[in-house]
Design a protein around this nucleic acid. Sequence first.
DNA 1: GCCAACGTTGGC
DNA 2: GCCAACGTTGGC
Length: 152
Amino acid sequence: MKYWLMKSEPDAFSIDDLQQRPGQTEHWDGVRNYQARNMMRDDMKIGDQVFFYHSNCDSPGIVGIAEVAKEAYPDFTAFDPADKHFDPKSNPDKPTWFMVDLRFVRKLKRAISLQELKLKPELAELALVRRGNRLSIMPVTASQWDFILQLE
DNA sequence: GCCAACGTTGGC
DNA sequence: GCCAACGTTGGC
């Protein structure tokens, strides 16, 4: 089993939104970055654990845990010209973009802010705190995962 | 709202 | 294949 961190803007889709979805499950559409796509398509398996990170908000940080509920399948929002994430280069016969489904696991007892994560030498290698990182999906090692959870 | 850091695009 | 221009991300 692998560990991941996935970013979402809480104004668009928050951990609370995930918790309130039917089955507490939602598809993770709109990823339009090849590195992030490759991780979803090639490496994310059912049961993988995911830190849910709130980005681009007042207090960016890790707010909860989700798990992979369905492995990669074509991101159908890329096929819809009316959709914000429409991509004419992608089509159902040969999709460019993929998504997974996530299921809510739990919220953390407290949010762990980016500010706090940046201070921890144990997390120096975490892509999230590295300069200029903009990846919306990134791997987390087992030791990073355990370390972050014991901060809770 | 600003802007640094990236990724992508397209002319050549 | 280079690289300038442009668009996006996301912290602050």
